Structures are given as C-alpha cells and as structure tokens.
Simulated scan of single mutants.
Amino acid sequence: MGVLYHLWDNTFDAIKHYEEALKLDPDNPFIYYNLGVAYQDMALFKDKSIPLYLKSIELNPDHDNAHYNLAVSYLKSNNLEDAMGEYKKTLEINPDYADVYVDYGMIKIRGKEFEEAMGFYDKALEIDPNNVEAHYQKGIVYAFQEKFDEALAENRKALEINPKHTNSQFNIAVIYHKKGEYDRAIQEYNLVLEIDRIYQDAYYNRGQIYAVKEDLPRAYQDYITYDKIVKAKTGVQPAALALRGLEDEEVEGFMLPSFKDWLLEYE
C-alpha cells in the first residue's frame, strides 16, 4: 500500500504504511529504501533519508538505486565528498546508471565548467537517449553560453519525451524572454501554467513582461499570484517591493525587478 500511496503523490500516507510494513518485516532493505525516497521527496535528508538509505545498503549492499539516492541526499545536504563516494559505488554496481552522469554534469555546472558538464550529459545520453534530465541540463548549458537555438532544441527534446516536464517549458519561455520576444515569451509562460498552475516563477516573469509592456493591471495580478504561492509554501511574502507603483498603475519611479533566470537544481 505504501508504494501505491507514493505513486499517487500521497507522501504522508505512504510513510505511514512503510513504517507499518517495517514493524512486520524489519529486515527488508526495500522498505527502508522506499521510506528513504519518501522522506527525500520531503527534503528531509540528514535526519531521515540518509539513515534509511544507509540501513537499506547495510541489508543489501548491491542495491544501485539506494547508493544513488544516498548520493543525491548527501549532495543536497552540501556533503559533496560523501556524495561522490556513493556515485562511484553506484557505477561500480551498475556502470550504465545514466543519472549519475547527469548529476556529475550538474556538479560541473555549479563551477561553470560547461565543457566538462556537456561531456557527462553526452555520456548519459549515450546510455539512455531518452534521458529527459540530460537534454534539459544540456539546454541550460547552451542557454548560459547564449546558444539559444541549441538550448531551445534540447528543451524541446525533453518535452517530446515528457510533455509534463515543466522546467523545460519554463526555460523555453525564459529564452524568448531573454531575447526580448515578449509576446512569444508570454505564450510559453502560459504553457508552463497549463502544466502547473502554481509554478510561481512563471507568474513572476510574465508579470515582469506585462510591466515592461505597461500592462500594469496584469503585471500586478501576476505579482500578487506569485506572492500568494510563495507565501503559502514558505510563509514569506517576497515581492512587496516589486509591487511598488503597480497597484495604483504608476510607472514613474517604479524599479522593474529582474526576472527569474535558468534553473539549477543543485544551487
């Protein structure tokens, strides 16, 4: 039952059922692994997912997915040394684990080592030509290099494989935004919101375009929506300064906020 709840994105009930399953079968490595994934989905790394993956590996040392997800949890906890060790163990067990090479590429992007990153993404795609994240991340590298045609092509490949890959759709919108093709960018941001109605940065960026176009009521509404979503998620209301001058449709003295740029998962 825990797996079903997890597939239905009902993480809390999934955790409840996994914990009940552990009482019945306390030496099952896959229950520890699935419970670790559930807590990882909730961004609870140090106190939850990492100890659970370690227990799963203790019971089943050759489980490549457990080593990989342990590496991801370490990386997201800013423990690069242990993350690299677990990535290495993953590849020792399964040399064709494409997602390890994708993550290597993302680590290289953090250091602006774009050519090295591209090499890892190409390696991932050699193993798995339909690896969505590899295409998406290649698009980010091309965008940083201002190779916008190539960036668009990679993001569109990602969307062909997974039409619900919101980040690829968002980055397509950002490219047109960055190029100053505002009407096309608005269309692309609209597509982002068709996939995910609470994708906050799409509202923020679309609002920025409306402000440039002096369509202040729409700009104001998008910033308000952005504020509401972020506040619901974090308790913080971040865009108060961005709204200055918009409520009364005043342009003079209004400082336009920068729009949200390329997404980097492991910033």
Rank of each mutant, 00 (worst) to 15 (best):
I195T: 06
K16R: 13
E252Q: 09
D201P: 07
D27F: 12
S49R: 01
I175K: 00
P61Q: 04
K164M: 09
N10Q: 10
L125M: 12
E247Y: 10
A153C: 00
D122R: 13
L263C: 09
L243Y: 13
P163W: 06
Y266E: 11
Q187S: 14
F114P: 12
P257W: 01
V192T: 14
K164G: 09
K55P: 04
A21E: 07
E249M: 14
L91V: 11
Q169L: 05
A151W: 03
P51F: 01
E81D: 11
F45C: 02
P95T: 13
H135F: 12
N171E: 12
P26I: 05
L125D: 11
L24I: 14
Q145M: 15
E113R: 12
E267F: 12
A124R: 01
Y97K: 08
A117V: 04
Y32N: 03
E194Q: 15
E249T: 09
E154D: 10
K76W: 00
I109E: 06
I172A: 06
A232G: 09
K46Y: 03
A66S: 15
D27Y: 15
I229Q: 05
N131A: 10
A185H: 04
Y53C: 00
L54E: 15
I93Q: 03
A14E: 01
N167R: 10
Y136D: 11
L24S: 11
Y101K: 01
L4K: 13
Q208Y: 08
S258W: 00
N162K: 13
I186A: 01
Y121P: 09
E115S: 12
E19A: 02
Y87G: 00
E250S: 11
T234F: 06
R206L: 14
R206D: 11
H63M: 15
A158D: 00
G235N: 10
K48N: 11
F259M: 01
P217R: 10
A134I: 10
L35A: 02
Y87F: 15
A71V: 02
E20H: 08
A38C: 13
V192A: 03
A151G: 07
Y189N: 05
E181M: 08
E58G: 03
G235R: 09
L7P: 05
F148K: 05
A143D: 11
F170S: 02
D82F: 02
N78T: 05
N28P: 09
Y68F: 14
Y199F: 15
A211L: 08
K112Q: 15
P51I: 04
N162P: 07
N10S: 13
N78M: 06
N94Q: 11
H6Y: 15
